[in-house]
C-alpha cells in the first residue's frame, strides 16, 4: 500500500519537475540562427569544394599540372589538363574540372598538392537546377573570383 502512494507521489513529482524544466526554457532566449537572414562565418578549416589558388605574382594559377590531385582523389572527380606554351619550360594549366557531385570532401587532393595550388572554398550555399551545374570549371571560377 505504501508502495502505491510512493509511486503516486514520486511519479507526480517527476512530472511536475519536467513541466518546470520546459517552462524555464520557454522563457529563455532562443538559440537558433535565423538562417537566410543571418549566416555564420565558416571556420578557416571548413572544407567546401576545392578552388584554385591564384599566384599573386603572375596572376595565374599556382598549379604546375603534376596531376597528383587527380591521382589521389578517391572518387575521380578531378580532371586536370595542361599545355606546353611555345618556349615555356613547364606546362601551364589549361583546364581544371571538378565534378562536385562525386566529391567526398576528404581533403586528399589538397594534401597531395605540393605547390599548394588548391584550397577548400568556404562556399556552402550551393544549389543548382541540374547535375551539370555541379561540374565546376575551377579556372573560370578563379578568374571570376579575382575580377570583382
Amino acid at each position: 500500500m505504501s508502495g502505491y502512494f510512493n509511486d503516486l507521489f514520486s511519479g507526480t513529482k517527476s512530472l511536475a519537475v519536467g513541466m518546470g524544466i520546459t517552462l524555464k526554457y520557454f522563457f529563455e532566449p532562443v538559440v537558433t540562427l535565423q538562417y537566410p537572414h543571418e549566416t555564420l562565418k565558416m571556420t578557416p578549416r571548413f572544407r567546401g569544394h576545392i578552388d584554385l589558388v591564384k599566384d599573386e605574382e603572375t596572376g595565374e594559377s599556382k598549379c604546375i599540372v603534376c596531376g597528383m590531385c587527380q591521382k589521389a582523389c578517391p572518387s575521380g572527380c578531378i580532371t586536370v589538363e595542361g599545355e606546353k606554351k611555345e618556349g615555356a619550360k613547364k606546362k601551364t594549366l589549361s583546364s581544371y574540372t571538378l565534378d562536385f557531385t562525386k566529391c567526398s570532401l576528404c581533403g586528399l587532393c589538397v594534401e597531395n598538392c605540393k605547390p599548394e595550388a588548391i584550397t577548400f572554398s568556404k562556399d556552402y550555399n550551393l544549389a543548382g537546377p541540374s547535375r551539370e551545374a555541379y561540374v565546376f570549371d575551377l579556372v573560370k571560377r578563379m578568374k571570376e573570383r579575382c575580377s570583382p
Binding site: 571556420t43 578557416p44 578549416r45 571548413f46 572544407r47 567526398s104 570532401l105 576528404c106 581533403g107 577548400f120
Partner: peptide, 11 residues
C-alpha cells in the same frame, strides 16, 4: 568543424 573541417562525415 574548426579542427577537422567537416561536421559529420569526418575524414
Amino acid at each position: 568543424e574548426s579542427v577537422t573541417g567537416s561536421r559529420l562525415t569526418y575524414c
